[in-house]
């Protein structure tokens, strides 16, 4: 499309052919990768044929949800929220200094900047379930491992967004605070903090909302929350109880998402 704009009329034809060939090649590569992947997975076609039937059958066994069971999942659900809230608060506390050293305009030197980048990358590329596995080994099963799993996964996310926000602040305003004789701490609390405050609030509730979802699965590795209950019910083939849990998760997640969206709209 843009090829016509930035090449001379004489070269237009050739360039377009080249482009087309490139595109065609790319499509071929993608197709080839897909076919190869499909064959590598060695999926039995019987599965696919019977899958819709099986899924329908499963839903049949799930319905109606076990309403009596609802009372039993209140506690695990509260645990899930506990994990999300404390995990997010902990992550915020840990991410703030990481953001400070990750932002190019506030980091003391190159080594600290590199350290910040490594922490961000490390935290982000390890899924909370893997963090959960590790923390269950260290702290044993339960809520604590879940909290730490969610927190360690969130540090990179929060620190990255926050440091981008710090990099965008008005440097002249912080310079002016230095010029009045303010200390570096004054610069931080009077110059930097007011500028990133809305972003800070927005990022926190956004991550909290994501963490509610994450905390529904930490239980699969024994790190507390509704996931433990869910895994037990599935293991015991109590499908009607499973549906009750799924509905409960849906309600809690949608509710936290609405709260998060409301707060983010308000703090602009």
């Amino acid at each position: 499309m843009t090829a016509a704009d930035d090449t001379a009329p004489g070269e237009w034809e050739r360039f377009d052919t080249k482009r087309r060939l490139l595109r065609f090649g790319l499509v071929l590569v993608v197709l080839g990768a897909t076919v190869a992947s499909w064959r590598a997975l060695d999926v039995r076609y019987v599965y696919i044929e019977t899958a819709p039937e099986n899924i329908a059958d499963l839903f049949g066994r799930m319905y109606p949800p076990d309403a009596a069971y609802a009372g039993e999942i209140v506690d695990p659900m509260i645990q899930t929220i506990n994990i999300a809230v404390i995990g997010t608060v902990l992550a915020l506390l840990l991410a703030a200094p990481v953001a400070y050293i990750s932002a190019r305009n506030t980091t003391p030197n190159r080594a600290t900047h590199a350290l910040g980048t490594v922490i961000v990358a490390g935290s982000r590329s390890i899924h909370s379930l893997i963090w959960g596995l590790v923390f269950v080994i260290v702290f044993g099963t339960g809520v604590l491992a879940g909290i730490l799993a969610v927190a360690f996964r969130s540090i990179g996310f929060i620190a990255k967004l926050l440091s981008e926000e710090i990099e965008e602040i008005d440097a002249a305003a912080t310079e002016a605070i230095r010029a009045t004789g303010g200390s570096e701490l004054d610069v931080l609390i009077y110059g930097i903090l007011p500028q990133i405050k809305p972003a800070l609030a927005g990022i926190s509730v956004y991550r909290w909302d994501i963490n509610v979802r994450e905390a529904t699965i930490t239980g699969f590795v024994g790190a507390g929350g509704i996931g433990v209950e869910l895994q037990n019910s599935i293991g015991a083939f109590r499908w009607d109880a499973v549906l009750t849990i799924l509905i409960a998760i849906l309600i809690v997640v949608v509710a936290s998402e609405s709260i998060s969206a409301y707060v983010r709209r308000k703090v602009r």
């Binding site: 999926v43 599965y47 499963l58 994450e214 529904t216 699969f220 869910l230 599935i234 083939f237 998760i249």
Partner: peptide
Amino acid sequence: VTRSIHELIVGIVFVIGFGFGAF
């Protein structure tokens, strides 16, 4: 619904419900 239910939950249901692996 698909946003709210974590893919891992769907995964575990399929694994135990049907015995699928990678599928």
